[in-house]
Structure formats: C-alpha cells, structure tokens
Design a protein around this nucleic acid. Sequence first.
DNA 1: GGGGATCGGAATGGATTCATTAAACTATAA
DNA 2: TTATAGTTTAATGAATCCATTCCGATCCCC
Lengths: 228, 228
Amino acid sequence: MSMIMDDEYLPLRDVVFNTLRQEILTGKLKPGERLMEIHLANKLGVSRTPIREAIRKLELEGLVIMIPRRGAEVAQISWKSLKDVLEVRSALDALAIELACERMGQEELELLYKACERFEEATETRDTRKIAEADVAFHDIIVMSTGNKRLIQLVNNLSEQMYRYRFEYIKDESQHDMLVQEHKEMYRSIQCKDKKAAASVVKKHIDNQEEAIIRQLQLEKGEKKHRK
Amino acid sequence: MSMIMDDEYLPLRDVVFNTLRQEILTGKLKPGERLMEIHLANKLGVSRTPIREAIRKLELEGLVIMIPRRGAEVAQISWKSLKDVLEVRSALDALAIELACERMGQEELELLYKACERFEEATETRDTRKIAEADVAFHDIIVMSTGNKRLIQLVNNLSEQMYRYRFEYIKDESQHDMLVQEHKEMYRSIQCKDKKAAASVVKKHIDNQEEAIIRQLQLEKGEKKHRK
DNA sequence: GGGGATCGGAATGGATTCATTAAACTATAA
DNA sequence: TTATAGTTTAATGAATCCATTCCGATCCCC
C-alpha cells in the first residue's frame, strides 16, 4: 500500500474498490467466493471501513451480491447473465457507433485509423495482452467520440464484465483475421458516415464474441466434468 | 424510523439509500445541496456509518458527486447530461420493446392491455400522481417481459434520473391524448410482434419527452431570471 | 488600509469497539 | 448411530472515537 499516492489523491475506499474490481474481473477472486471484511482488511492493510464502502459500490455494480447478515460474495456468472450483458452491449455499441458516424471529427478519424493498423500489427505478434490492449484502444476511440458521458460509462462497465472471457476469445488465433476485417469495416463505415452498415458490423462483431464465449464456457464445463 | 421493519429485514444503509434517493429524485434535495453526514445522521436518527455507505451507492449511481475532502453533494443536472441520458434510454427502451415483441407471453400481453386501459383512465382523473404511476406500471411490464435482468436494472436507473422532470411533463394535459395514443400503438406493435414499428414508436415517445423536458428547463430558467 | 498568515471550528476519512445474529460443532438422548 | 438442542464462535451491522484537512475569520505586519 505504498505506491498509491502516485500523483493524485484517491480515497482508500476507491483504491480498494479498484483493487477488488480488478481481482474479480480477472478471476483472481472466483464467483461464489466470500468477501470477508476482516480478511480483506488484513490482506490489503486497511481497516474495515474502506472495505465496506468499496463493497457497497461493487454491490450496486452487480459484481458482488449481498446476503443479509451473511456478507458479500462474488456474483456468479451464469450463461444467462452473460447473454443479458451481451444483449445490452450490442444495443449500446450500436448506438455508440451510430453516434460516432455523426460526431467523429477528422483528427479522431485518423486516430481510429492508426488504432486499426496497430491492432493488425498486434495480431501478428500473437501477444495476447498486446492484442487485447489494441482492441480496447480501438473501441475506446469510437465510444469516446460520442461525447456522451453516460454512454461511455455504461459501455466501459459492460465490457469489463466480460474481461475474463475476452482473453480466451482473443487467444483463439483463427479469429484474428476476422477481427481485423471487422475493425476495418467499422472504420470504413464511420468514415463514410454509414450508420446502418456500422451498426450491423458491430452487431455481427458482438454476435461473434458471444459464440466464442459460449464455446469457451462449454469448454470449461467439459474440463470441470473431466476433472471430476 | 419505526415503520421500516414491515415484513422483511432491510439493512439500515438500504433504508437510508432509498430515502435519500427518493428525496433527490423528487427534488426535496436540490442539485448542488450538500449532503453532510452528521446532519443527515441526526435527521434520520441513525449513525454516520449507514449514511456513508448509502452515499457511496448514490455516488456510483451518479446521483451525488463526491468532492475529495469536502463531502458529497447532489449532482447537478445539466442540459447536456439529460440529453446523454435520453440518448441512451432511447436505445435501451427500443431494445426492450423489440425483445418484448419476441418474448412477451399471452398473460403478460393481457396485463399490458389492462395497464394501457388503466393509463387511459388515469389521464381522465387528472391526478398527476396516478397518471405517473400508471405510466410506470405500463413501461415496467414491457421492460420486465424481456427477462433481461441487466436491461431491467439499467432502464429503471435511467428513467429514475428524470423523475423530477417527468412530473412536470405529465402535468401538461395537452400531451395526454398523445401519450395514450402512443401507449396503444406500443401495445399493438407488441401484439403483432412488429419490432420495427414498436421501436419507432418508442423513439418518438422519448423524443416527445425530450422536447417537453427542454421546454420545462427553459421555463425554469425563465422563472429563475424573473425571480432575480 | 490592505494583504497575508495563523488560528479555530467543522466536516470528512479511517479505525476501533460493541452488539447482534447466524452458522457450525458438540453433546446428549432416543 | 442419528437427530436434536444448546452452546460457542465468527462475521456483519452500527456507533463512537481519533486524525486530517479545509474553510473562514481575525489579527498582525507592511
């Protein structure tokens, strides 16, 4: 707990919030695992208060669920809840790219082009981490260009909910060409301000992700059965 | 603080959360007003802890903003932020009604019909409160019928952000006929499973709301100027 | 007389303490 | 041996306490 005062002040509760959030999203804290205040307080070297306040926020985000008089645990991710998230994301990403068609300026368009190229380069390195980052960067430019703060917040939120699966998705190299193609199509659609085309590419993009994630889930299920 | 143990247990923080939330949404707590922990604790007859935890959740919802080392205050609603919310709501409500077209069962369809009738009756009473409730009930049926928990949560959240304006909107009796018509159209579209029509009615519905709210805002601005 | 510094009050940030409750374990009886 | 009841333990809920910081007012010096 020494590297936190880097350049700006952040209340402890927010540090804890971000920490726990990351641990849940990256799978370090597994679904169903109990979040015990004292234990976390010891582990993170703070008192219970910031832990509790962080948990309240995670609760509202749906990342943890509260059981009255029992405490918090990491929310289960069911197939259904994932489908729910993807359904909403699909609509919001479509909205985002339509707005981007209207609102993206010349400089941003160039940034997007560069991000597109960088993503293609990243796929060639086969460095999963790098690919994921380039992908996020690309999508961020689109979403940010809408200038709609609420939309930005919601999309970020929803995409983070799927991070643990995204890694697996990106690992699958057979998908890479398609991903690059889809990104290029998005770029072109925005460049031409063709809202319809843009929206349909995004929806296809998310559908692909959904399929990949479902495959992933079934794979995991299989492994579990096998281990038993 | 005595009527709260009605039938089920609710942690104090959630009681406080709901209370503060209502007061903000109904305008009892005005934008910019400071939320002082001790003061609220005295007022509500609880200690600071549940107050703080409630405020954390309100912060994540965007209803209050935290100023470091200064405390919380009720978030300002700018024209821009309202437009942002409406933009997102429009997309999500459209998604909701499209899904409703696919998924709504016969019983729910009948419920929706009844809600539609009840709304029409409510407009005739001219009881603003009743009308608002009937309106909420109608939309709730649609959103709930999607079965998408995340979508339900988000739409509820976003609509509540506009409650203070909605009252004013509903007061305007010249709009009532149009509202009733739009509700009927929504019902029919869902009944025929006509997704396109449904989505376009919803978008029109929200556009109307936006206009009404803008009128309302300008009115308030005028009043303010006048009072000066 | 004006500007700056210092002191005081007040509010938040965080920790500790106390009470309540629920779950688990053990012991006893059938 | 199993089931039930009682006890114990551990974790959350809530309140109080201490430290830090910030804003404002007053006072002193230029």
